[in-house]
Design a binder for these strands. Structure first.
Lengths: 218, 218
DNA sequence: GGAGTTCTTGACCGTGCGGTCCACCATAAG
DNA sequence: CTTATGGTGGACCGCACGGTCAAGAACTCC
């Protein structure tokens, strides 16, 4: 009986069933980050299992035991990415002293990047939707959910900006949020095609000037 | 000597060197169109040679003899696509009685599509830039050139709209053209993720209202 | 009809892929 | 210590891919 009780105690204290054996020698989050970067840089199809083993430092067996096949590992990394992105977005939108500033950041983010290296990678979710959207409905569905969430977050911020008197109260916040999101994705895309920083900046300024007009003079 | 002269004559009249032999049993343009649709629907990596043989109706040998390898065939199809697209863009921009209407069409095009099937495919050039941009500099360079050309065409149209009094004369035409292009790419992208037609329409309207304001009341 | 040339077909090849499996290892409990 | 258990790494497999090639078909010219 003693052993049974001991087993129950252990099950409460840690997730290992019955008995602990050899513990994992890697941190799941670190592996997911490394894998995410690899998929981000090279895309799904162009990333081989060998690449994944190299960047994660794990053997095939470990990867498969821990995450399943390549596609599942990719989906895990993708979810981790979108969760992080939304976390950062929430933070930016919440921390800005004025909501309008936060919204302007959305359009300025793609150009706050001297070398263009960061922006050139684009957004992993967008890249994946483009590469796999036709073939993998789950990726498409996740993209849809992701952008709906982003739209809602930005929409809240638009409402706040309206309350603060920085945006016309009449406009539909969701439509404006979607317009901002579309504009941002467009900017990232143009950066990805190699548009130079100066032109990108001018474009972002033009978009911001018209989608988020300065009403301080009102 | 007679044969030499004959060769010259023939070279002028048709592209076959020296002597005509078995003629091609396919039309190059038709093959390129079929291949383009396949790449468009499935992407580059997800399209196998077998797919290409199926849609073109040709054997491997013929494809390779006529176009080289898979990548070259893809590049040919891509160039054909961008040429056609620019042709249509030129036509739309030139034929519109008022330049502003033509510019509005740019943002409305993604939603003039009841089932969404057409828009869901997105733009082959954009899809390719996303999928291959990291790995194939030539695709990226072609994307860059393509969008520079589009920018120039749209920029001309903006100038015309300014002359016609439909857009503020002060704005930088190129920056506005780039903003419109970015907005359009953003719209196409959101459609690709499965955004429903109603939301897409509202977004397009919101973008058009702010980027191309109605000045008829002025 | 014969000769010469190109186009077509499909069998064939090597490679690299994703995925499986198993022998070995590290750890915890007794 | 022994034993049980889960983690690890790499050898191995089958397959589908992109790409090659040779033999035959289709055509023109003489």
């Amino acid at each position: 009986m003693r052993s049974t009780i001991s087993v129950v105690d252990r099950a409460v204290k840690n997730p290992y069933p019955v008995r602990m054996a050899r513990p994992r020698s890697f941190d799941e989050k670190q592996v997911l980050n490394a894998v995410r970067d690899q998929f981000w840089d090279a895309g799904y199809a162009a990333t081989s299992l060998e690449d994944l083993m190299r960047v994660s430092g794990l053997g095939k067996g470990s990867l498969y035991a821990a995450f399943g096949d390549k596609r599942q590992l990719f989906l895990r990394a993708l979810h981790s990415y979108t969760d992080d992105s939304h976390g950062r977005l929430r933070q930016v939108l919440a921390e800005a002293p004025r909501a309008l500033d936060a919204l302007r950041m959305l359009l300025k983010a793609p150009i706050d990047d001297p070398t263009g290296a960061v922006t050139r990678r684009g957004c992993l979710m967008a890249n994946s939707a483009y590469e796999l959207g036709n073939a993998d409905p789950e990726v498409l569905a996740h993209a849809h959910r992701t952008y709906e969430t982003s739209t809602a977050l930005i929409g809240d911020c638009v409402v706040r900006a309206q309350r603060e008197g920085d945006l016309p109260a009449g406009a539909d916040p969701i439509a404006l949020a979607r317009a901002l999101l579309a504009a941002q994705q467009g900017l990232v895309f143009m950066s990805r095609t190699g548009l130079d920083a100066a032109a990108l900046t001018a474009t972002a300024r033009s978009l911001a000037a018209q989608l988020l007009p300065d009403r301080s003079g009102d």
